[in-house]
Nucleic acid binder design. Structure first.
Lengths: 206, 206, 206, 206
DNA sequence: TATGAATGAGTATTCATTCAT
DNA sequence: GATGAATGAATACTCATTCAT
């Protein structure tokens, strides 16, 4: 019986893929903590417990590594899953839930968010991915709102604006929450946010 | 006959102050365009038309220069002026105006905003100043909203949330507007934003 | 039934020898084109279509590979063959032919010549081989000239000098011919060279 | 009396020019000894007794330094001076003298010759300068020979070939002399070379 | 035999900072 | 005040070589 060279190659390939993943994950953490520019390849290698030369076996350059990081950890799938739960549910009931889940998702992806916020200028792919996520997310969310308008649950209005209002506010809430938490806790904040958005803050007319 | 040392000193002081200001202004532009880390002192000096060594006559280090930049260009005064016009004006009338003015102010301070967004990790003073501006601004804005609630113009609600909703949305709108403009134009967006915020987006109860 | 180990070994040896030869041939081309130092082992392996590690099965080091290249492609045999045709032929008749053949031989070995010219400092074996070829060639050539002197066909003179004059001129002609061809074509040049050498360029004494 | 800023600047400029020259001279020696590729900038700086960073104050890159070296040490002027002594002198009398002087000039420029021979591939300016020197030199030499033909001192022949024969032979003689000196000493060699060239090596007819 | 993952020393270059003039 | 020569540490990246499979 001949040896199976294919099997062996596959095993090596798997190991290599694991290693690649490990390097990406380590880089995500270190980039988020220290920033892309202030992180040296030597540091990355040390953090991953490998020789610096190995970085270049897996990634052509430090820039390409950053690309790999943002591509691999882009939370598009989770965002889609999250937003797919919207459909056929009444707005007042789900907006708070989805808002809080979105906030939580951003929290889980804190490292990535750090990169999105700070490394925009380092490499063009970073804002491109971020823009992709936001646009897609806003778009899906807007579709839901449009449906609800059609159903007469929401009044006719510019849903791009309301979608962005909710999304932007939560994104920046998340951004500032870590750095300098404020009085109102996030959950409570989002509850109020949705209430305000639905009912308005103006006093009921006369 | 010797010249009076005092006169000369004053004249020289003025020149020095001008020069200092010039270096700060140049640095603001270059930092905003290229990022703090990717800008060398040599580049800054060249952009200002002086020798590199001169930078260190005016600023102890590159970091201190960054501090000087964010301190000097902090738009706190303008923000306070802007918000001081709020008082004793009815909300529906002024929110749009103030919102648009705020958006425009952020636009004028685009270079500084770039630094706030991207150089948070470079030096602790950057997020500190940014946080100061935001907190102060939000606080003043919230005070105004509280007044309007007292006057019965707005319904009782968490004004911290509504203040932040408006502020955060406009900030991120500004941030994304330059990089990737979206369908709705800013002015229109802010109009809708204020309308939504005041009246809510829920359909009027039957 | 097991295969005879001897047969297998022989077959494998042949394959191995082929592979070795292939690696040497590839290396010759790449070294000549890019230079020894500027060629990485990775590049060599890629050019030969094998993994880098395999290079070290066949050659102990990059230096040893260079040795193998210059040893294998040393054109000593061809040179000897070429010069062996000299004997018993009259000088005026054969010098031009041999000169042109020598020029052509150098042309065929252009890659090797490139290595001889540029990589002298890389590894001591390179100038050693080159010196060997030249000295042996000059020596054989000189022997021929000495014979012709004895036969009275050439006048008594320092044949080391005349041998080197012809050889050096053709070598450098070849070296410069590729890089920057000059007015006189090589064939013609060599004809004139031999004519001059035999008859001298001085005007016949009155 | 005002201080003379110009004088001071000039003094600094002089110092800078001296330093520049020193770095070039040091580089010439080290490049010649170790080869361009095998010499690190750190080594160059150490050999010159300065910090490595200073190299980049004076030369934009290692390549530019090599350019500066070959440009500054190109022996074109000396070669022209040497060849200008030819005119109006009879060939038999001066060819040996000029030949030996040329050999000696090459010897004085041994370091530069090493670079010309070995670093052709490193940077395009190296062969360009070498070609310039050779072409100009050959051309001037050929002009002289043409004159002598016109005067009836030399017989009509292809002077490009005879000029190159003498030049090439001496160049390679010089190149091999250092590496592996041979039996005939250079002076003697050149005497024989000129004798052969003038009188030919064929036995006198009849 | 053949692979390619892994190593670690080495390289050119950049840069903030100092200082004599 | 102003210059730019000089420093030396840091950085991204390359490469010959080794070795487990």
């Amino acid at each position: 019986m001949k040896p199976e060279p294919h099997r062996r190659a596959t095993w090596r390939d798997e190991k290599a893929e694991e290693r690649r993943q490990q390097l990406i994950d380590t880089a995500l953490q270190v980039f988020a903590r220290k920033g892309f520019d202030k992180t040296s390849v030597r540091e990355l290698a040390a953090a991953a417990g490998v020789a610096q030369g190995l970085m270049y076996h897996y990634f052509k350059s430090k820039d390409k590594l950053l690309e790999a990081v943002v591509e691999r950890h882009s939370f598009m799938p989770q965002l889609k899953t999250l937003l797919s739960t919207l459909h056929d549910e009444p707005a007042p009931k789900v907006l708070k839930v989805v808002g809080k889940q979105f906030f939580e998702l951003l929290g889980q992806k804190e490292s990535l968010m750090n990169i999105f916020f700070h490394e925009t200028q380092s490499h063009p792919i970073v804002p491109r991915i971020w823009r992709g996520i936001m646009n897609e997310g806003i778009s899906l969310f807007q579709n839901y709102l449009d449906e609800r308008v059609k159903l007469g649950e929401l009044r006719p209005h510019n849903t791009d604006v309301s979608a962005r209002t909710l999304a932007y506010t939560i994104v920046l809430l998340r951004g500032t929450a870590t750095a300098f938490p404020h009085r109102t806790r996030a959950d409570e904040f989002i509850s109020h946010l949705v209430d305000n958005t639905l009912s308005g803050i103006a006093a009921p007319a006369g």
